[in-house]
Nucleic acid binder design. Structure first.
Length: 274
DNA sequence: CCGACAACCTGTGAGC
DNA sequence: TGCTCACAGGTTGTCG
């Protein structure tokens, strides 16, 4: 899936088409995603106007006003999800699970692995449990070296899987965790609690820069990711270590290595990262 | 509380 | 060609 940059690129692509537009309704073909799609989604959305499209971590939040009542349409793309516009009446393919119908076009949610999520949150209700547990936004001003230093004290877990823990900090997925640590010169195997203050001060901008660069590049596109307008991203070619096991390090004469952490592949250069 | 792991799904590529 | 296996961008729940 989309990590934070891809979701942000998607959001920005959506914005000009969707903001201020009125939703005619929703067609749910597959109610069984990671969580059940609300059976009354069509009734909730019909007649609402999309006042804004926001992002929290990897969740897209469509702020809907009017209709049967204000609320937020929550969409997560999971591992393999995408959103794109198709002309009204376009036949649905195998993994096209939900259509959001506008007057001039349809925004179609497609997700082969069905790890994604489409939910409705009525205005005034307590924050959705999925959102309530989310950690800090890595592109916010609150994400500082001081914060990271304090947040990692006493943590024995390796820093790489910890960076991917959305309860701590949101949006950093498997690709950008490896890339950020390479940029900061920190070994993914190092216990998070044993990273000193100065290196935390270095890691924060490394993460921020990695994510910002990816957003600027238009997001990555490995396999499933598609821009909201159907175009493919292009950050993938710029990966320094991710998916480069056995290849030469871009910075030194060393060789990129691969290891498994928490069931996920990690890539790093043992010569550059300690 | 913390950390490791299985589970949820389908598609793809490698190897036999 | 066709089978099996490992693995893929995420997150939750469970267990020790």
């Amino acid at each position: 899936m989309p990590e934070l940059p891809e979701v942000e690129v998607c959001r920005r692509g959506l914005l000009p088409e969707v903001e201020g537009a009125v939703l005619l309704g929703a067609t749910v073909r597959t109610p069984r995603l990671r969580l059940p799609v609300p059976p009354d989604l069509d009734r909730r959305l019909a007649g609402t106007r999309v006042a804004a499209v926001n992002r929290r971590g990897k969740y897209l939040l469509f702020e809907c006003r009017g209709g049967a009542g204000d609320g937020t349409l929550i969409i997560h793309l999971g591992m393999s999800g995408n959103l794109r516009f198709v002309p009204s009446g376009t036949p649905a393919q195998r993994h096209d699970h939900v259509d959001l119908s506008f007057a001039r076009q349809v925004l179609r949610f497609s997700d082969p692995r069905r790890f994604g999520v489409v939910l409705w949150q009525a205005a005034g209700a307590p924050e959705h449990p999925l959102l309530a547990v989310l950690g800090i936004e890595p592109l916010s001003d609150a994400f500082t070296g001081d914060w990271l230093y304090a947040a990692t004290r006493g943590r024995a877990a390796p820093v790489k899987p910890l960076l991917m823990d959305s309860h701590l900090v949101v949006g950093i997925g498997n690709i950008y965790a490896s890339e950020s640590l390479f940029r900061a010169g920190i070994s993914p195997l190092r216990a998070a609690g044993r990273i000193g203050r100065a290196r935390c001060e270095a890691l924060v901008p490394a993460i921020r820069q990695t994510l910002s660069d990816a957003i600027a590049a238009g997001g990555s596109s490995i396999r499933d990711y598609v821009h909201s307008d159907g175009g493919a991203g292009c950050f993938q070619v710029d990966c320094a270590v991710y998916d480069r096991a056995g290849l030469p390090c871009v910075r030194c004469a060393g060789t990129v290595r691969q290891v498994r952490q928490g069931g996920r592949s990690t890539y790093w250069c043992p010569a550059c990262q300690h």
